[in-house]
């Protein structure tokens, strides 16, 4: 009735890798934020899947926390992106290098 656990792991790994790929290849800060969300959700899939597999709701509860965390993170992330735009007239993350040595 349910898919075997390996399927969830493969799905989660795939989503995570997509997130990492996006993080490494994009310059747009908004896409960065999305990639990070993908990686977080990959972790969530794992949490829920194992929780279901072991018949223990702790993992699912924990994934709720992760989602709340992700929402907070997005709020801050969007805020940072707005400030970035205000200062550099752009949201290209490779442009904002004035704080280095």
């Amino acid at each position: 009735m349910f898919a075997p656990p390996e399927a969830y792991l493969v799905l989660s790994a795939a989503v995570f890798c997509i997130g990492v790929f996006g993080l490494l290849t994009r310059k747009n800060a908004l896409l960065f934020l999305m990639s990070v969300e993908l990686m977080l959700n990959a972790a969530n899939i794992n949490l829920v899947a194992f929780s279901f597999y072991w018949g223990n709701v702790t993992g699912q509860t924990f994934s709720l926390f992760t989602m709340a965390l992700a929402a907070a993170e997005v709020a801050i992330g969007i805020g940072i992106i707005l400030v970035l735009y205000r200062n550099f007239k752009d949201i290209d993350v490779t442009e904002a290098t004035t704080m280095r040595w």
Partner: peptide
């Protein structure tokens, strides 16, 4: 420390 976030991510 290049200041480029992508490098750090890499």
């Amino acid at each position: 420390q290049t200041g480029v976030v992508s490098n750090y991510a890499a």
